[in-house]
Design a protein around this nucleic acid. Sequence first.
DNA 1: TTTCGTGCAAATCATTTGCATTCCA
DNA 2: TGGAATGCAAATGATTTGCACGAAA
Lengths: 141, 141
Amino acid sequence: MMEIIERLKVKGITLTPQRIAIVEFLGKSVAHPTVEDIHKAIKRKYPTMSMATVYSTLRLLKELGEIQELSIMKRGKACFDPNPKLHHHFLCRKCGKILDMDVDCPIIKKGWVSGCRVEEAQAYLYGVCSECLKKEQSAKE
Amino acid sequence: MMEIIERLKVKGITLTPQRIAIVEFLGKSVAHPTVEDIHKAIKRKYPTMSMATVYSTLRLLKELGEIQELSIMKRGKACFDPNPKLHHHFLCRKCGKILDMDVDCPIIKKGWVSGCRVEEAQAYLYGVCSECLKKEQSAKE
DNA sequence: TTTCGTGCAAATCATTTGCATTCCA
DNA sequence: TGGAATGCAAATGATTTGCACGAAA
């Protein structure tokens, strides 16, 4: 994730310890954290870290195209994906986990559809993940 | 939309004038209205109609599978689609309009993906709609 | 009569904003 | 040093909830 830091530096973005901490946390996260998740995690290191700072840094990173915010919401809370590239998501209704889907849909992508210019695309699948299905199976036996 | 009313009756749902008004409004709406849109429209006929009633009726209809709530949000507000069948949506960043997309994606649908059971799927496309593109074009000339 | 829906107001909760203080370049 | 970032608290705005009243079976 140091590449992000480099790009921010090149763009003249002020690199505060808080911002670096957020970028580093996002870089190693795989769970599509909410603002609260991020705040809680970083508060251990920086006890004064405020929600306002987390919100503003996330907005900055989003505007710079370094991360993406998902339209799917974890129980009403926004969540973020450190991977800004086009990919889709699966939300498990049992455990609430969000999984990245590496499916390449020929239609849901940038380009043209019915005369409209598509600049961004996101697909959301909802259901039960393989882990939860396994648990259901064992419970039955 | 009278079929919905029929189905509600069969299921033993109490049919109040307010609920009927909401169902009728949704039935003839094509613009994916927000809760506020619905409330405002019906308030003309029923001046005492409260937001709480709109919210509770929408939740009821959603739980019964008669309508769907979109994960895409009109400026932070939830919006609803009277068509509960699987289809996708396009949000125009210029005019804010949401269009139904009649594309049949072979991957973004119910079924199985990577060991997960997909019960519901929604794809969202973001960009500029054909109308706004036309306006842009004329402005240039 | 008894249950259920309505509508008002108050409560909730995520997110935003104002502003004084502090920090990076 | 100067402009930008931080952090606190207060404000905002969508949605939910509690509860008394009224309507429906």
